[in-house]
Nucleic acid binder design. Structure first.
Lengths: 253, 253
DNA sequence: CAGTACGTTGTACAATGTACGGAGTAATTC
DNA sequence: GAATTACTCCGTACATTGTACAACGTACTG
């Protein structure tokens, strides 16, 4: 399991699972003791509480209450399970009617909805979606989010590109936040310990002659963020820029 | 090795390695047969040609010509090796003088430089940098790239945020491109096969009554990109938006 | 009742990072 | 010079992962 990706395996089988289309041939043998949703729900709970790395086939199986290999009668493999987890999370997102608001507010809300998704399910930002799971959750999400650009005058191609742009931004911000969190948790060195251990060498090596701008700006940014990097502030700054950039496209330069 | 991250281990030791500061106590025993740069270079070559997943300690050791465990006398662990690879790649980036050009051209060039970095070293976009490798390469890069915002009137905090914004965008685009490439390579299903296998079910399930906008926009976008997703076009669209968004900040609304 | 396809599971394997300890070597110390 | 020490190099071993395979039991079909 080199990386966490999605969309391997027989695509038709995956699609049938996503849309919960059972095989039409009558099933012989014993009934399955659990449902696909049981598996997916257990996996999502595991990922929410302990992170994506905790989602091993053995752990999911134990959470459900079956032997590891039993999972393979519900799901072709781990990649498909990730697809199903992602699509289920998409399906559960709230989709209030915002047709009365101006487009800028709608797009900001779109970003916020996705930020909340990644806040509730940090693992969702990590799953690579080279080929996204074309399930009912993603379709409902796509349909809903495209509407945020109603009334902007963008054509269909621009509309898709604009949505992709916003979503990619939020996802990148969520990834950065997750990485920062992970670094803190896993390293066994707190930020203070880290700086205390590094300060002597850094002081010797980062002379302001050689890196004048970097030292000055880095100090100012570090002071403003109370850390070397603040995911929240990066998100806020970035979102304002994203909206401004789309504004130029929409309102004309 | 759950994920590819960087910055674990004793930070002071890592920093000494990054800046090539040898232990000051005189070394006893046999001299090392290779240099740290030999290890790092071999690892980078491996990653460039076969991807980050091919960078196993065993494979790097074989490329260098030593036993796997020998690497641990050069490097504390794999995480530190990734840090060193990343910093070395940063150090090798070109940094031409662009002080004569307007800021927009300089920022566009900055993005392009990073796009080329990720084109040459796709693995660099995958390495998580929760705590970035504070080595000479990153410092030189940071110093140089901050200069792209000279003359914009941004204060130091804004300048750092703007640079982070641009770099995160390029990195996200590179990741998306890498994911798309990986999906194609690993899945053993070509895009045509994938669509052929999925088309029947998709046609049944994606009715235009339920997903009117999605079906229409998806079709238009797919036709315009000759695929469900085009990393290049997403990059071009996004970069224009990034520059416009920064333009609003710089020139005032 | 016989046959067949399916659910469940124990065992097993390959790949990974790296801990551990042994063997050899060179600098330091007596 | 001899003993000690610290270091390089490396063979072995272990835990963890996804999942292939085959055995065994079960419920539906004929």
């Amino acid at each position: 399991m080199p990386n966490h990706r999605s969309g391997a395996g027989d695509p038709a089988r995956t699609l049938r699972l996503l849309w919960r289309q059972p095989d039409e041939t009558p099933r012989r043998g014993p009934r399955q003791g659990y449902s696909l949703d049981d598996i997916v729900t257990a996996a999502i709970e595991l990922a929410d509480t302990d992170g994506l790395d905790a989602v091993t086939m053995r752990a999911v199986a134990q959470a459900v209450g079956v032997a590891p290999m039993t999972l393979y009668t519900y799901v072709p493999g781990k990649a498909e399970l990730l697809d199903l987890m992602l699509d289920a999370s998409y399906a559960r997102m709230p989709r209030p009617d915002r047709s009365g608001e101006p487009w800028r507010a709608r797009v900001a809300a779109l970003a916020e909805d996705n930020r909340k998704l990644f806040a509730a399910h940090p693992w969702a930002a990590e799953v690579g979606t080279g080929r996204p799971p074309l399930g009912p959750g993603l379709m409902a999400k796509y349909e809903y989010e495209l509407r945020a650009f109603d009334g902007t005058g963008l054509d269909d191609v621009q509309r898709d590109a604009a949505l992709t742009y916003v979503l990619d931004f939020v996802r990148a911000a969520a990834r950065a936040a997750a990485e920062a969190r992970l670094a803190r948790r896993e390293s066994a060195w707190s930020d203070e310990q880290w700086w205390a251990a590094n300060a002597p060498l850094l002081a010797r090596v980062l002379d302001a002659q050689r890196y004048p701008t970097a030292v000055r700006v880095g100090a100012a940014a570090g002071a403003a963020q109370n850390a070397a990097y603040s995911p929240e502030q990066a998100y806020e700054f970035g979102l304002a820029r994203v909206l401004d950039g789309l504004g130029v496209l929409v309102d004309g330069a």
